[in-house]
Design a protein around this nucleic acid. Sequence first.
DNA 1: CTGCTTGCAAATGATTTGCAGGAAA
DNA 2: TTTCCTGCAAATCATTTGCAAGCAG
Lengths: 136, 136
Amino acid sequence: MNNLKEKLASKGLKATAQRLYVYEALFNSREHPTAEEVFRKVSKVLPSVSLSTIYNTLETFVEHNLVNKVLSESGTARYDAFVETHHHIYSEKGEIIADYYDDGLAELLLSYFSKKKIFDYEIKEVRLQIICSTKE
Amino acid sequence: MNNLKEKLASKGLKATAQRLYVYEALFNSREHPTAEEVFRKVSKVLPSVSLSTIYNTLETFVEHNLVNKVLSESGTARYDAFVETHHHIYSEKGEIIADYYDDGLAELLLSYFSKKKIFDYEIKEVRLQIICSTKE
DNA sequence: CTGCTTGCAAATGATTTGCAGGAAA
DNA sequence: TTTCCTGCAAATCATTTGCAAGCAG
């Protein structure tokens, strides 16, 4: 998405080539890449890019809500250009298989919780981890 | 719980002092300690214990389903002696605040999914991450 | 006894940081 | 110009591993 330049500007961030390519790499992937994977993709078009720039860039995006950070069971961080609330489907091994979007589900959960009046705190978000047996 | 010795025996694991104390440390804590925190607790009673033994012991317990491993947003692993399915309440910062047990919720979710017939895979488990605003 | 476990130290993997030069605004 | 950003190398943090000695079964 090329309105990224505007989003960056509106947040006082400079629109560098590195940032544009990192975002592009994420946006064109449905695979929740790791920093290392983003690095390999961006390297193809910007061979001099460094891994630490990838990490810094991703972290900057996360802080400014342009990108989501998700953890896999192995502890390695994965990144996702889709920031709307959604759920993740995991294999038994703990790797993320897919995203799962479902508005009805959010409503169901929130009405369930408000009926039960369980929380003193305000619920900001409810995310599901759906663990499935892997089809081989 | 002291039937731990039996559980260990039944799995062909030796009941060493280290293992008993690690389990005790977890069992007496509702705070999802990290390996480091378990290490500090066990050190008090067994000063010569090493951090790698803590890691190995915890990993052994996880493999044999005596203990659960949970990830905090920071990527550091936390451990939990309660292995029944339950959910975790997180602060906005991503630290785990509390456990949340709710059988009705599991049923609600499973019936929701079976009605919608979304998945080709078998759902093994559904875990919630409930993110709450922190009450200070 | 004998193999599973431990403790130590070194290795690893992921991510972060300090800093000097470089490029957007 | 001036501040923010990048690339490099070194540092850090959590966790894992190899190996010799120790202890439970």
